[in-house]
C-alpha cells in the first residue's frame, strides 16, 4: 500500500518538530540537573574560601582566581593578534595564494583538538622553554587555541562594515590605517566583542589543554610562573577522583552558569548588531 504524500508530510513535520525540541531538551536537562544538584551547596562561603583537603572541604576561590587570570591574560594576547590578522586579511590584501595559505593555517589551527594543544604546550612551553607547569604556559597555549575563533568572527564583523563608509573616509583624506582605526573597527566592534566572548566561554570550559600546561596546583597563582588550577580542571579532578560529589556539582554549576551567561551575552550583542545592519 502506498502512503499518501500528504500524510508523510504531516508525519515528517511532527517528527522534525520533536527532534528539534528533544535537542533543546537535552540542554534544558543538563542545566536543570546541574542546577538542582549543585545549588544546595553554593553559598558565599563556597565562592570566597579556598579549597581544603584536595577540595573535599572549603570552597573554590583559588580556582576562580586561576580561571580569571588565565582567561583575561589569554584574551589580552589573542585579541590584538586575532583582530590584527582579520584586518590584514580583509583590508590589506586581495585574495591570493598568500591569503589562502594564511586561511589554511587558521582553519587547520581551528580543527586541532585541545589535547594536541595540551601535548604541544607541554613539550614546548613547559619542557623546552622550561616554564614548568605555570600560568604563563597555560596562557600561551590557550592564546593559540582561541586565536582562530577570534580571527574568524572578527573577519566576518569587519566584512559586514559597508564599503561605502571606507570610501567616504578615504575621500575625506584619511589613510588606510586611519580609516581602519576610526571607521572600520568602531563599526565592527560589537561583532568582534562577540567573538572574544565566545572565546572566553571556550577557555573557561577547557580542560585538556590546560591541565598539562598550567598544571593543577590548588594554591593561589600569584605570579606568571606559578602553577594553578582552573574551575574546569578542579571539577574534572573532583569528579574523576571521586573526591566530593557535592563540591563537584557545585563547581559544575558555577562553571556552567558563567559559560552560559557569557555566551548568552555574546549572542545578545550579535543579534543587536544584525538588527542594526538590516
Amino acid at each position: 500500500m502506498r502512503i499518501k504524500p500528504r500524510i508523510v508530510d504531516v508525519f515528517v513535520r511532527i517528527s522534525l518538530n520533536l527532534q528539534a525540541f528533544f535537542t533543546v531538551g537535552i540542554l534544558a536537562v543538563i542545566v536543570a540537573i546541574i542546577f538542582i544538584k549543585g545549588s544546595p551547596y553554593i553559598n558565599l562561603e563556597f565562592i570566597i574560601s579556598s579549597p581544603q583537603d584536595m577540595g573535599r572541604h572549603g570552597g573554590i576561590f583559588s580556582t576562580i582566581v586561576g580561571t580569571i587570570l588565565l582567561v583575561l591574560l589569554s584574551i589580552f594576547l589573542a585579541t590584538p593578534l586575532g583582530v590584527g590578522t582579520a584586518i590584514f586579511l580583509t583590508e590589506y590584501t586581495k585574495e591570493s595564494v598568500f591569503t589562502k595559505v594564511i586561511r589554511f593555517g587558521v582553519e587547520s589551527l581551528a580543527g586541532i583538538p585541545s589535547i594536541l594543544f595540551g601535548l604541544f604546550g607541554f613539550i614546548f612551553f613547559v619542557t623546552k622553554l622550561k616554564m614548568g607547569w605555570s600560568l604563563l604556559a597555560g596562557v600561551l597555549t590557550t592564546t593559540i587555541m582561541i586565536l582562530p575563533t577570534i580571527i574568524r568572527t572578527s573577519e566576518e564583523a569587519i566584512k559586514a562594515v559597508p564599503r561605502s563608509l571606507r570610501i567616504v573616509s578615504y575621500s575625506l583624506s584619511a589613510t588606510k590605517w586611519e580609516t581602519v582605526k576610526k571607521v572600520v573597527l568602531p563599526s565592527a566592534a560589537p561583532g568582534i566583542l562577540t567573538g572574544v566572548m565566545l572565546s572566553v566561554g571556550r577557555a573557561v570550559g577547557e580542560t585538556a589543554a590546560i591541565i598539562f600546561t598550567m598544571g593543577s596546583s590548588l594554591r593561589m597563582p600569584l605570579s606568571l610562573m606559578d602553577s594553578g588550577r582552573t574551575m574546569a580542571v578542579h571539577f574534572y579532578i573532583l569528579a574523576r577522583e571521586g573526591i566530593s560529589m557535592e563540591n563537584a556539582y557545585a563547581t559544575a554549576l558555577i562553571l556552567v552558569l558563567s559559560i552560559l551567561s557569557i555566551n548568552i551575552l555574546a549572542y545578545y550583542i550579535m543579534n543587536r548588531v544584525i538588527s542594526k545592519f538590516s
Binding site: 563608509l165 567616504v168 575621500s171 583624506s173 589613510t175 571607521v183 568602531p186
Partner: peptide, 18 residues
C-alpha cells in the same frame, strides 16, 4: 592625502559616518 584635502567629494547617496 594632500590631493584629497584639495579635491573634496560629495557622493550620489549621502553616506554619513555612524
Amino acid at each position: 592625502v594632500e590631493l584629497r584635502r584639495k579635491v573634496g567629494t560629495v557622493f550620489a547617496v549621502p553616506i554619513p559616518l555612524p
